[in-house]
Simulated assay, not measured.
Amino acid sequence: MYPSGSKKNHTHGDPKFLSFESFLEAWSVRQIRYLDELLSVQNSSCEARQIDHLELIHRVLYHYQQYYEEKWRVAKWDVFLVFSPPWLTNLERAFLWIAGFKPNLVFRLVSSSVDDMTEDQSRRMDRLVAETRLEEKALDDELAKIQERVGAPPLANAIRRHGRTSQDGETAGGGGDDSALGGLRRALEKVVANADMLRATTAEKVALILTPAQTVKVLVAVAQLQLKVRSLGLQRDAERRQNGGY
Rank of each mutant, 00 (worst) to 15 (best):
Q31W: 03
V222K: 07
L81P: 00
E119T: 09
I159F: 12
P103N: 09
D177H: 13
Q42C: 02
F20D: 05
V150I: 15
R49C: 06
P154I: 02
L24P: 01
G245V: 10
T165C: 04
R240T: 07
Q31E: 15
V82K: 04
A203P: 00
L181Q: 02
W87K: 00
L188I: 02
W77G: 08
V114H: 08
Q224K: 12
K102S: 01
K205L: 10
N9G: 10
K16C: 02
A213V: 05
W87I: 13
S28M: 11
W77A: 12
G100E: 08
L18V: 12
L139E: 08
Q226N: 12
V41C: 05
A193V: 07
V110M: 04
L198S: 06
A130M: 10
T89V: 04
R133K: 11
P3E: 02
R73C: 03
G100Q: 10
S28T: 13
L38T: 05
G174H: 09
D196N: 15
K71V: 07
Y64K: 09
L198Y: 07
I57E: 04
S28R: 11
G245W: 11
D115C: 08
A158T: 07
A130N: 07
V206G: 05
V150W: 03
F95W: 10
R185K: 13
L210E: 08
V41F: 15
R199G: 01
T171C: 03
D140C: 06
S112F: 05
L81M: 12
R230V: 00
Y246V: 10
R49P: 00
S122F: 02
L155T: 13
N90I: 01
A152S: 11
R127H: 12
G5E: 08
S231T: 13
V192L: 07
K16S: 07
G183K: 02
Y34K: 06
A213R: 15
R123Q: 13
A75P: 05
Q31P: 00
S122H: 05
Q167N: 09
V60W: 10
K217F: 00
V218A: 04
E148G: 13
K145C: 09
G175R: 11
H53Y: 15
Q42P: 00
L198N: 06
D140Q: 13
D14M: 06
T118S: 15
V220L: 06
A195Y: 04
F95Q: 13
R149L: 12
D52P: 00
A223M: 14
T202Y: 06
S44F: 09
H10P: 01
E69D: 15
L109E: 07
S84I: 01
Q224A: 05
E239S: 11
V110H: 02
E142S: 15
T171Y: 03
K190C: 04
P153Q: 08
G175E: 12
T11H: 09
Q42K: 14
E25F: 10
W27N: 07
A138I: 01
L227P: 00
F101G: 03
Y34P: 01
R186K: 12
S28P: 00
S40H: 13
L219M: 12
G174C: 09
G182C: 02
T215R: 07
L234R: 00
D78P: 01
N194C: 03
R59F: 02
H63Y: 12
H63E: 15
L91P: 00
A238E: 11
D140S: 14
I209R: 04
D36V: 11
